[in-house]
Simulated scan of single mutants.
Amino acid sequence: MAEVASEAVRTGDQYRIDERLGERKPFHQVVVHSLERTMRWSGVE
């Protein structure tokens, strides 16, 4: 379980960085979008 959580955290970090590299947007939108993408990646709805 810890391995899955660690992978999800790393994936979330990568999505957050990806969100920051795109068009400028408020930080809360960056967090929301990266969290949504991470949840979709991990199969959580």
Rank of each mutant, 00 (worst) to 15 (best):
K25F: 07
S34R: 09
G43W: 03
H28A: 08
Q14F: 08
E23S: 13
E23T: 04
S6H: 04
G43C: 01
V31D: 03
E3R: 13
T38Y: 05
H28F: 13
S34H: 07
R10C: 01
L35N: 07
E45H: 06
R24L: 14
V4A: 12
R10Y: 03
R10Q: 11
E7S: 15
E45V: 05
S42L: 06
R16C: 14
V44C: 06
S42G: 05
M1Q: 09
H28Y: 13
P26I: 03
R40S: 02
L35Q: 05
R10S: 08
T11V: 10
E45C: 03
D18M: 07
K25Y: 03
H33T: 10
V9K: 15
R20C: 12
R10N: 10
D18A: 14
H28Q: 09
H33N: 15
V44Q: 05
E19D: 06
E19P: 00
E45W: 03
I17L: 15
V30D: 01
H33K: 09
L21Q: 08
R20M: 15
W41F: 07
R24N: 09
D13G: 05
V32Y: 08
L35S: 06
M39E: 07
R40T: 04
G43Q: 03
A2I: 12
V32W: 06
I17E: 06
L35D: 05
H33I: 00
H28C: 04
V9T: 09
Y15S: 03
M39H: 06
T11L: 14
R24I: 14
M39Q: 06
S42M: 11
E19S: 01
S6V: 09
V32L: 09
R20F: 12
K25W: 05
E19V: 01
R20P: 00
Q14C: 06
E45D: 07
S42T: 04
E7R: 15
T11W: 14
E45R: 09
K25M: 12
M39S: 05
W41V: 00
E23Y: 07
V30F: 05
R24M: 10
L21F: 12
V30G: 02
F27L: 11
V31P: 02
E23P: 02
E3L: 14
S34M: 02
T11K: 15
A2S: 08
E3N: 09
R24V: 14
Q29P: 00
Q14K: 15
D18H: 12
Q29N: 06
W41N: 07
R40A: 05
W41G: 00
E23M: 02
A8K: 07
E7H: 10
H28P: 00
W41R: 11
R40V: 06
V31Q: 08
K25I: 07
R37M: 06
S34I: 01
V31C: 10
M1E: 10
F27G: 00
L35M: 10
S6R: 14
G43Y: 04
K25P: 02
L35G: 01
I17F: 14
L35F: 04
A5Q: 11
V4F: 04
V31E: 09
E23G: 00
V32N: 03
R16Y: 14
L21M: 08
I17Q: 11
W41S: 04
D13K: 12
E23K: 09
R20V: 13
R16E: 04
R16W: 11
A2M: 11
G43I: 02
